[in-house]
Structures are given as structure tokens and as C-alpha cells.
């Protein structure tokens, strides 16, 4: 995992963990790796991982069992909401860059559906 050095790393760690949860690599109700394990795996500072996990605990996507570590929430509505937020964030980026190329919203829709059709016929 490579991090961008001009964005706070705790934010990037959060993004990384969101993805892991949404793609099912970290399952609801299951324990996530310890702070030190994550730090070694991502080659980042332990304090930074701690900060990311604290925020995710505060948001409710993780919860702490005393002496056992951090677990992924089993609250499905919260997980759904997180997934939606992530998708929205990606779409936001996509639409922004299309708009900056001078492509209108309708053109985006048209181009996207054509693109998807082509992609699928390739399969």
C-alpha cells in the first residue's frame, strides 16, 4: 500500500479500511488486525493508525472490545451508508473531472452507458 505524502495519512488509512470492509475483506462482526500489525503491514506510524481507528470507533464503523481489539460493526444500515458515501465520493471525483473536460451531465450519462455496453460485449 502506497500513501500520498501530501494528504494526512490517518485519512488514507481510514479510506483503506473502508474499502476493506465494503469489499468484504474485513467481515462484519470480525476482529480487524491489531494496531501494530496494521502499522507494519502498511509501513506507517503506530500513532497514525491509532488515530484512524479512534475516529472510526467514534463514527461507529468499528467498535472496541476491552482487551480484545477492534471489530467491524454488524450494523448493516451503517455499512450500507458507508458504502453509499464511498460510491458517492468516487462519482463526485469522476463527474468533476468530466465536467472539467467540458462534458455535460447528459453526455456523461450517454458516454458511460455506451462505454459499459462495449466493455460487456468484450467479455
Amino acid at each position: 500500500m502506497e500513501f500520498k505524502d501530501n494528504i494526512p495519512i490517518y485519512l488514507q488509512i481510514k479510506q483503506y479500511l473502508y474499502r476493506q470492509i465494503i469489499t468484504g475483506k474485513l467481515k462484519p462482526g470480525k476482529k480487524i488486525p491489531s494496531v501494530r500489525e496494521l502499522a507494519v503491514q502498511l509501513t506507517v506510524n503506530v500513532n497514525t493508525v491509532q488515530r484512524a481507528l479512534q475516529q472510526m470507533n467514534f463514527e461507529g464503523i468499528l467498535y472496541t472490545k476491552r482487551g480484545e481489539g477492534n471489530f467491524v460493526t454488524e450494523d448493516t444500515t451503517l455499512l450500507e451508508k458507508t458504502k453509499r458515501e464511498l460510491i458517492n465520493a468516487e462519482l463526485d471525483k469522476f463527474v468533476h473531472s468530466m465536467n472539467s473536460l467540458g462534458v455535460s451531465d447528459e453526455q456523461i450519462l450517454k458516454s458511460l452507458s455506451e462505454y459499459l455496453k462495449e466493455e460487456h460485449s468484450d467479455d
Binding site: K4, D5, N6, I7, P8, I9, Y10, T48, R51
Partner: peptide
């Protein structure tokens, strides 16, 4: 602090 540097959208190297 490095995270304070990054919060200003600057890399530590820069």
C-alpha cells in the same frame, strides 16, 4: 508534526 504538514496539502519532502 508530519500530519500537520500534510493537512496543509504539502508533502514532508516538499
Amino acid at each position: 508534526s508530519t500530519e500537520a504538514i500534510r493537512a496543509d496539502n504539502q508533502s514532508v519532502e516538499e
